Computed example of a mutant assay.
Amino acid sequence: MRLWLVVVYCCFFWLPLLAHAELLVKKQQFEIKEFQTQSGKTIQDVKVGWEAYGQLNADKSNVILITHYFSGTSHAAGKYQSTDTAPGYWDAIIGPGKAIDTNKFYVVSMDTLVNANVKDPNVITTGPASINPATGQPYGLSFPVVTITDFVEVQKAFLESKGINNLYAVIGPSMGSFQAIEWASRYPDKVQRLIAAIGTAYIDSWSAVRLERWAEPIKADPNWQQGNYYGKAAQPTAGLVTALAYITQDASNPEGFNQKYQAPALDQKAHLDIRTDLTAWQQLRQTAAARAALQDANHILYLVRASQLWRVGMSDNWPQALAKISAKTLFLPASGDLLLTPEMSRNSQQQLQQAGNQAQLTEIPGQWGHLDGLLNIASVGEQIRTFLN
């Protein structure tokens, strides 16, 4: 009788606590000796970081791939150390008992090629800041232009090295949605489910030109020196900080932004001196400067170009490429997104539906626009859980 009480106590008290225990993860490295890009260029000794949450089952059928956003990393959930100040960006939905349940799924996430955060000790990536084995010097702009397809092919090579040939689901926000959609289109027989958060199957001319303002401050910085600034005292830091400030603003919505950043009416000095920056702009640049310490200017340029060139299938007919997707599909646009608008997700959904795929769409509520795909993702956690189950 006492043993029975102990079992009941463990089941109803301890197991729920264990289900939500802190998730500790480890960054690991994958290497490809020779990788050929979509453009036909060869990159030697490609290295990317990866991490995983949960356990791989015997037949390797429970794998979910998380593909990260523009300025993100593979750190999607958990902590590297219990003392870390914050967990991975989607920790609210990835973990034991959460929407993407690591008691059930083996969740994998990888740093992309040319990851923006190349100076972060927890990021492993190959890009312009890396040493070219052929010269012993940083690649700089001799690094080939890479595309979303190249990111997917590196991920595929990694999964195959682990004997993983099929994905239960591929899920990603923003630039991560591009990768997820490309996965489902390029390898329809390998992807069962697709979730594209704050994303789209294409980038139009208006959006591509808008992204150019993330690149122009870097290229206008005299210290950029056509990308040849590695090892020099003068760095294009000012241009990088401005670019990151623009990225933050473009990913925001006025509703949330105006609550966080000071109103111009309170800027007394700005009323008196044209040289005085608005306090809101100063605040934005301070945040950007902290991020710039871990990022590289050239890497931002390459990610901008990969995003500008995005359309599913990387062909002239993106709806035709989208029609190849057979995976059960869910689009999750953010209601107030001014960067990758809900209309772009809805157009992608409708194109897929016209091809016979019963793609679903649920909007993420919130006041932060594009950023709600990170900050408020838990609001659609139950929809994600239901979709996966």
Rank of each mutant, 00 (worst) to 15 (best):
W50G: 07
T147Y: 13
G97A: 10
D111H: 00
L3V: 13
M1Y: 12
V63H: 03
T37L: 00
L56T: 09
E31V: 13
S109E: 05
V48A: 02
P133R: 02
A76D: 08
D84Y: 06
I66A: 07
G136F: 03
Q29K: 14
N103I: 06
F30R: 07
S82N: 10
Q29T: 15
L15M: 14
K79W: 02
P16L: 09
T125G: 03
L65Q: 05
D45S: 02
D120W: 01
T125R: 01
P121R: 07
D101V: 09
S71Q: 05
N117R: 15
W50S: 06
A129I: 02
P138F: 00
T73I: 04
H68T: 10
Y139Q: 01
K60E: 03
T125I: 02
Q44Y: 11
G97E: 10
L5S: 12
I131E: 00
V108H: 05
D59R: 08
G140T: 04
C11T: 12
K33Y: 03
V63Y: 04
Q81I: 02
T37P: 03
T67H: 00
T135K: 02
G78H: 01
P16W: 08
G78D: 04
S39P: 05
F30H: 13
W4F: 14
G127S: 02
K47M: 03
K79E: 04
Y89I: 15
N103D: 15
Y69V: 14
A86P: 07
T126Q: 02
A19S: 11
L23W: 06
Q137W: 02
W90P: 06
N117V: 01
M1I: 11
P121T: 04
Y139S: 00
R2S: 14
L17M: 15
K47A: 08
E51D: 11
K33N: 13
F30L: 08
Q36W: 04
K104R: 15
I43S: 00
Y80L: 15
L24Q: 11
F143E: 05
K119A: 12
V114F: 03
I94A: 05
L56I: 10
E34R: 03
T67K: 04
G54M: 09
V146A: 01
L65F: 09
S130F: 00
W90Q: 09
T147M: 05
D111K: 03
T102R: 09
D45K: 01
F70H: 05
W50T: 04
T102M: 09
T85F: 11
T147Q: 10
K104E: 14
G49H: 07
M110W: 02
D45M: 02
A99L: 10
K60A: 11
D120N: 15
W90M: 10
L18N: 14
V107L: 06
D91Q: 07
I32Q: 09
S61N: 06
T67C: 11
L141G: 02
T102K: 09
L18G: 12
D59E: 14
Q81L: 13
C10W: 12
S82Q: 11
E31F: 07
D111E: 05
D84T: 08
D45Q: 09
S82E: 13
V118S: 14
M1R: 13
V146L: 06
A77H: 06
K104F: 10
K33D: 13
G78K: 06
H75M: 07
A52Q: 12
V8C: 13
